[in-house]
């Protein structure tokens, strides 16, 4: 990916962020908005949780597959874990867990 494409995509994201910010302020201003810094911290926390959940899901998955292979005549490929759904569900898992944890 060239620098031009990178700038183009970053500009798109920047534009929609500013539009969302302006629209929210005009149409439905939040009663007590947090700071951008707080939001970025929440993003980092989510990323950390995502890494933990993804690693845990992959390790558990590999262990279960190796156990099935060892204890039954059934063959399950380790490539089963190479699935986009694993990434999406781990991300959702991290998001929900973080929201629950913050509300506590």
């Amino acid at each position: 990916m060239g620098l031009t494409e990178l700038i183009f995509i970053a500009a798109l994201v920047g534009a929609t962020t500013l539009a969302a910010f302006a629209a929210t302020k005009a149409l439905s201003p939040p009663a007590a908005a947090g700071s951008i810094l707080q939001a970025l911290r929440a993003l980092l926390d989510w990323a950390g949780m995502f890494a933990i959940f993804l690693a845990a899901n992959l390790m558990l998955g590999a262990a279960v597959i190796l156990m099935i292979r060892a204890l039954t005549p059934r063959f399950v490929a380790l490539y089963t874990l190479e699935n986009l759904l694993m990434l999406i569900l781990s991300a959702a898992q991290a998001f929900v867990f973080q929201a629950w944890w913050r509300c506590e």
Binding site: L44, D45, A47, G48, A51, I52
Partner: peptide, 22 residues
């Protein structure tokens, strides 16, 4: 452990940027 999770988050984001964009 909150600090650890945040540090891990920083590492995750940094690794993602390095892998995807460099």
């Amino acid at each position: 452990w909150e600090r650890i999770i945040r540090c891990l988050g920083i590492v995750t984001v940094a690794v993602f940027i390095i892998i995807a964009l460099t």
